[in-house]
Design a protein around this nucleic acid. Structure first.
Lengths: 253, 253
DNA sequence: CGAATAATTGATCGGTATCAAGCTACGTGG
DNA sequence: CCACGTAGCTTGATACCGATCAATTATTCG
C-alpha cells in the first residue's frame, strides 16, 4: 500500500483544523507559544474515514502517515496464525498511532466504530519535529502516557479475574467519556467502543465469558445492557469496587 | 525520600563514564554529532548500588533521578493491597527508568540482581534535554521501544499458556544476553535475572506452575536447571517453538 | 420479513490455582 | 568442616474458574 492509494481515501482536501472537534487536544496543532505560531497555518494534513471493522493497517504492512483520531475509536491488535488475538490498545479521539511511519506496523489497526483520522506524512512529521521544538516533547509525554496505560493493562491481564477485567474496561471507558456521557434520570448511559468479541480480545477472555460476566454485573444491579453496545451504569461506586482496584493508588506497606 | 538520602548511597563521586561498561549504549552519553560534543565532558551523574531484593523506589514515592542501568537487572512491579502483584517490566543494562523524576513513581522498582545505576537529577535532565537536541529524540525512540515491548507482553499475558509464557521469558532473556552468554560444548548456559516467585509475577502465574513448567521443559530435553538461577539451553530451536510464536512475524491473511 | 451474524445461555472439560508436604541450597555458627 | 536452620524450590492432591462445545435467542441488514 503506498501513498497514492490513501490519496483516494482522503475525503477532505481542505485543511479544516478550525472545525476539528479535537482541535484543542490535537498533537499536530501549532503551539501558541511556538516560534512559528501564526506565521504558518496548519498544513499538510490528510483526513480519512473508515467504517467499523475496516482495517486501517495490517500487521507487517506500511502506513505512510502518523495519525491522530478526530472521531471514533480504533483497536491495536496482535495476532497469531493459530487464531489467537489480543487487543493491546484502544485508541480514542486525540490519540496518536503510527508515530514512526517509516517502519512497518507491528499491529493491525482496525476501526471499531465509524472512524475519522487526521494524518501527517512522514516528510511533514519530520519537518515539524525539526522546526517545532515543543512537538517532540509533547509526543514523548503522550507516549509515556501510553506506556503507563499499557503497563497498567498488563496487571489486568496477568492478575485480575474475568469479572474484574470486565469491570475495569467499562470503568475506564466511563472515565474516558465522562465529559460527554449522557445522564439519564438515575443512571449513566454510555456506548462501548468495542463489540463483544473485541472486548474478549481486549480482556484476554472468550466472548462467552464476557457475556456471562455482563450477566453478573446486571444481576448485581450495577448496570443494564440496553443493546450490544449501549449500557446504563446504575451504580458507579459498585462498578469501581468490582474492578478490584485499591481505593486510592497510594503506597502500600 | 529526598536527594540528601541518595547522596549518601552514591558510591562513585567521580564521573567514570569512560570506564562504564554501558558507555556505548548509554542514553546520557554526549552525542559525537551534537553541538556540545567535546566541549562539555559528561557531568552531573550519580552512581548507586543496590543488592538483590532491595527496592530502588516504592510505588507512590518520589525518586529524584532519571536513571540508566550500568549493570544488573531490576523489576517494575504493580501491586494491589490484597497481595497480588505483577511485574510489568524487567530492566536490563542500558535501560532507562523514571524518565520524569518530578512525578511520583507508579511502580515499585526493585533490584533483582546486584544492581548499579547511573542517575541524573531532574535539573540536569532538563538542562540536557534543552541543550542537546538529539537527546529527546533518543529518549522518545527508547520509550517507543519500551511501549512495543509492553504491548508484546500483553499478548503473552492475555493469550498464552503457562508453558508458552515461560518459554517466551527464557527465550527473551537468551536473546537479550546473546552477546555475552556462555557457550558450553553443546548447550547455552545463562543466568536468569529473576527468582522463581518473580518469574511467576512476571508471567501472571504462581511459583508452583512455573516450577511444573520448568519440569516440562526439562522432560522435553529443551533445557536443564543447574541451580535456581542458572540454566543450560540444549535446544534453542525447540525453545523457540515452545514460545508459541509464529515462525516469522510477517503478515497473516 | 427473512437470512446471516452476533450475543446469550447451558453442560462439560481442562488448565492453573490452591493447599499441603517434602526437598534442596545456602548461610550461620559451633 | 560439619550440624543446623531457613528460605526458596519442587512435587503431589484437589478445587475452581474460564474454555470449549453446543444450542438458542437477539439483532442487524438486505
Amino acid at each position: 500500500m503506498d501513498e497514492q492509494i490513501y490519496q483516494k481515501i482522503a475525503r477532505n482536501t481542505a485543511d479544516d483544523c478550525i472545525t476539528c472537534p479535537e482541535e484543542r487536544h490535537c498533537l499536530w496543532r501549532t503551539d501558541p507559544l511556538s516560534d512559528s505560531a501564526g506565521t504558518e497555518p496548519a498544513t499538510g494534513f490528510k483526513h480519512m474515514r473508515f467504517t467499523p471493522g475496516q482495517a486501517v493497517v495490517m500487521a507487517g504492512y506500511h502506513f505512510p502517515y502518523a495519525a491522530t483520531i478526530r472521531a471514533g475509536t480504533a483497536s491495536l491488535t496482535r495476532s497469531l496464525s493459530d487464531g489467537r488475538s489480543q487487543i493491546v490498545g484502544v485508541l480514542y479521539p486525540s490519540d496518536i498511532f503510527n508515530s514512526r511511519p517509516a517502519l512497518a506496523s507491528k499491529y493491525t489497526i482496525t476501526a471499531t466504530t465509524p472512524l475519522e483520522l487526521c494524518c501527517l506524512s512522514e516528510a511533514s512529521l519530520q519537518h515539524r519535529l525539526e522546526t517545532e521544538k515543543a512537538l517532540s516533547r509533547r509526543l514523548l509525554e503522550r507516549k509515556l502516557h501510553d506506556l503507563q496505560e499499557a503497563r497498567d493493562w498488563m496487571f489486568v491481564l496477568g492478575r485480575k479475574t474475568a469479572l474484574e477485567r470486565l469491570a475495569s474496561m467499562i470503568y475506564t471507558v466511563a472515565e474516558r467519556y465522562s465529559h460527554r456521557r449522557q445522564r439519564s434520570p438515575v443512571g449513566v448511559e454510555l456506548s462501548l467502543p468495542l463489540a463483544r468479541h473485541e472486548i474478549a480480545d481486549y480482556l484476554g477472555l472468550t466472548p462467552e465469558t464476557v457475556s456471562r460476566n455482563f450477566a453478573r454485573l446486571r444481576a448485581a444491579g450495577i448496570l443494564s445492557t440496553n443493546s450490544a453496545r449501549l449500557i446504563t451504569i446504575w451504580n458507579m461506586r459498585a462498578l469501581m469496587e468490582a474492578t478490584g482496584n485499591d481505593e486510592d493508588g497510594g503506597p502500600i506497606f
